[in-house]
Design a protein around this nucleic acid. Structure first.
Lengths: 151, 151, 151, 151
DNA sequence: GTGGTCTAGACCACC
DNA sequence: GTGGTCTAGACCACA
């Protein structure tokens, strides 16, 4: 679990951590049962306050992606494509998607180009194969990770 | 220009206003030259302080979507699909897109469904649809220069 | 970071602050990573309202010169001569330059004298000069992509 | 005297008029004694309020570029390169020049390129020849006038 | 402690 | 009438 933060980003650190975990789950790099580092461990690794990591994990738990307990630490709970999205999630997600796409269109990205970007990103999630089969992944990870979140 | 806000939302009011305007521009409901209500007018209509509207308009101006002056009030400056996405815009937009799509995938939306959502949203922008006849135009895609802003 | 304002000037206070910062960046007194005083700190130092400083910093951020966040405060983002002048910047800058030079010529400054003034000012930016030794560097000339054009 | 305004510019109309006149004087298109249209005439030509033109002329008069009287209307008073700049002009002009150049440098324009721009602009003022001698002017008038002023 | 948001009221510049 | 500037005070989110 490599996790790089941008300390100068406008995106809160706890949000950046959360975003990276979500992306790792979507990409299949983290699957149900995968352990995450302890809050204190990750905090020292990243050179940040452990309360911040705590907040990230708590957020992920509230989104149903993590289970936390004293014994086993933090474990990923969901796999990509598993189960139905929680009630109400889809609507608010679509709203945010609409805003994000509108932004691109308004700035001059044309429709097909925007759709291509969506397809490419989704494709990068589709065939992850963490470390089980040989994995014939065509174009796995986008480069340039930074300051995510749609706000 | 109907514009509804959620006063309880996490997202700041000025941001919500900005988002609605961006969507309206993307959807072609607002085109270059379209006037927006005056800051004070919109503020009273929405029951908020005029400084908040001011901030929205200022943000939109910095994104190159609005021109403001004391004579003609606030006017939309860009058309959807017009001009090049300003340098640097595309990268940070893709990062945000990746995070947003990851969120859906992680929550159990499968790839094709997510892509459908993107396509549907983009299609809803493709139609000009101010209130003229249906018009089957596939995609606008002007050429034209511009003068964006990376923010 | 000494910063003197003229409260009786026509130019808004927030604009004066912004101008001083821009000049300091151009002169190399502020480089990427340099911290600026906190908004409230600078406000009390200058005897003005913190919202006014806020607006200055916000403007500088929108110009890509500053990054702001709750952790590290305000940090300079660009170095002089670094990166490309954003699309559209050069044209509107040239227009303003033309007006300013015309003003001098119309007031009786002759061409060579005006050009000398430009050269002298630019030379004063060329020296890094934070407060290290004199350093006889003639001109820095970073990478800087094209954009020449005499029109 | 063609004089095009941008009604959507952020620059006040009276300022735009003033800027165009200053540039015409610098370029030698207007010389001492040249008449300007009457305020009412110019106002109707431009489709604006005559008070606005009045303000422009008044500003130009206060800058010593125009003389106004009831009989002869508005007459240009100065030639480019004529006489010394009024006391105090040079200092405040240099301040504005410094700010303008700093802006370019901070945005990534390198020193030589900026100086070239200055030289080119000044050269365009140098050889005007309004309509007296045959005029061998190589490149008299810039095109694209718009939204001037250094603020 | 930092920056960010929202409210509020005053005054100014422009047209 | 419009937008713009400045002041002021309150509260929140982040670290």
């Amino acid at each position: 679990m490599i996790l790089s933060l941008d300390p100068h980003s406008e995106v809160p650190i706890y949000q950046q951590i959360r975003d990276r975990v979500v992306e790792a789950v979507a990409a299949g790099e983290l699957v149900a049962g995968s352990p995450l580092p302890s809050t204190r461990q990750l905090a020292t690794d990243l050179g940040i306050n452990f309360h911040t990591v705590n907040k990230s994990y708590d957020l992920l738990r509230s989104e149903g992606l993590l289970v936390l307990n004293r014994r086993s630490g933090a474990l990923v709970q969901r796999d990509p494509g598993t189960g139905p999205p929680a009630a109400g999630f889809t609507e608010q997600w679509r709203t945010r998607l609409r805003t994000l796409l509108a932004e691109a269109v308004a700035q001059g990205v044309d429709g097909p180009a925007a759709l291509d970007a969506c397809a490419a990103t989704l494709a990068s999630f589709a065939l992850p194969a963490p470390l089980a089969p040989p994995a014939q992944s065509a174009q796995p990870a986008q480069s340039a990770p930074a300051q995510g979140e749609t706000r």
